[in-house]
Design a protein around this nucleic acid. Structure first.
Lengths: 187, 187
DNA sequence: ACATCAAGCGGACTATCGGTCCGCCTATGG
DNA sequence: CCATAGGCGGACCGATAGTCCGCTTGATGT
């Protein structure tokens, strides 16, 4: 496939920025295809063609925000990178996610709502789940790692994050997740 | 408030039955106010007046299905009832929920989707969360009980339940939840 | 520079759905 | 049997996700 045309690339950026702005200014429910298109100064058809659906908008934006963590996991230094012991990697990863979630509550809420019954299909979620599952298996092979990984990731569900950080800040979330993970995956 | 008029009571039942049937036959996304009204043989306005919104439909139905467990907790025999030791009550309660969730996957999925950002507001969810939080506090006062209770209840999220029971049946779900709870709330 | 044309674009259009409203109907109580 | 409060139904509204197609424009070869 040839490179994206220059105007197409420009529009993609405008659209993603528009989504960010609308999320920040008006909350998830006001991010409709129409409003995004209007804000980005493009037609509705363009938004749809680029991102496939409203859902795709949030998936792409989340992937962008999660890119740093992804890179750190694939080839970064400890504790996230592959050279660290699995238990440290797990705790480190969850801590990073906690920080990410706290910083992006609105996006995460929007993402969840839009994905609805498809959460498990989202590429970013799949990557996270896969990573956590593998790490749990390495440390505690006697666990239903797949299930436990889903539950640990549920710590970052939008409404929960909002509630916890509203009463105790990011610190409470990070502490709670870490304590929980330590119990679930003892050394 | 006076007793419900006979026709109103009849309609309430028709509507709930219609929701059940549509859920079973066509899945959550086909349960619209229109389709429910048509199936129940009443007008749309009637559905709305009875249940307030689409969400109310699922909340009421879930409350109905959960009534047995609720009664058992409030005044039943061990291990659910108040006379059992807290840790047994917790494990017993989660086990009951696992069975309930497995039997009502479709309803739960519909309920979640409809409640969207309001899960924490649902009376049934609040009751469950409250119960779990109290029990955890009694057994392990050093825990962020509120947070952990939310996570434990996330075990019964629709998509997760579907995935787990599709590969391992109710048994896998019950085992996984029990093992997890035992680790999170050790004696 | 220019011709060519596929890729990209825009926004009108459709379908659907949650929720509202109001005039008609009927169960109930006296 | 009558009066009436409450219930009823379905037309109506506004919003929104997603579709479609004729027009425009950036990339490319000469």
């Amino acid at each position: 496939m040839a490179a994206e045309r220059a105007d197409a690339a420009r529009n993609r950026q405008s659209i993603l920025r528009a989504v960010e702005e609308l999320l920040a200014e008006q909350g998830p429910e006001h991010v409709s295809l129409d409003s995004v298109a209007a804000r980005a100064g493009v037609g509705k058809g363009t938004v749809f063609r680029r991102f496939g659906s409203r859902t795709g908008l949030f998936q792409d934006l989340l992937a962008e925000r999660a890119a740093r963590i992804r890179a750190a996991i694939d080839s970064g230094p400890p504790p996230l990178g592959p050279s660290a012991p699995p238990r440290d990697r797990l705790l480190g990863f969850l801590d990073e996610l906690a920080k990410l979630a706290a910083k992006n509550i609105t996006l995460i809420a929007a993402h969840e709502q839009a994905c609805a019954a498809d959460k498990h299909q989202d590429p970013t979620y799949q990557r996270w789940h896969d990573h956590v599952t593998r790490l749990i298996r390495q440390v505690r092979p006697d666990t239903d790692a797949e299930f436990v990984a889903h539950l640990l990731l549920a710590s970052f569900e939008g409404e929960l994050v909002r509630h916890i950080t509203d009463h105790g800040g990011v610190k409470r979330l990070r502490t709670a997740v870490r304590d929980l993970a330590r119990r679930i995956v003892p050394e």
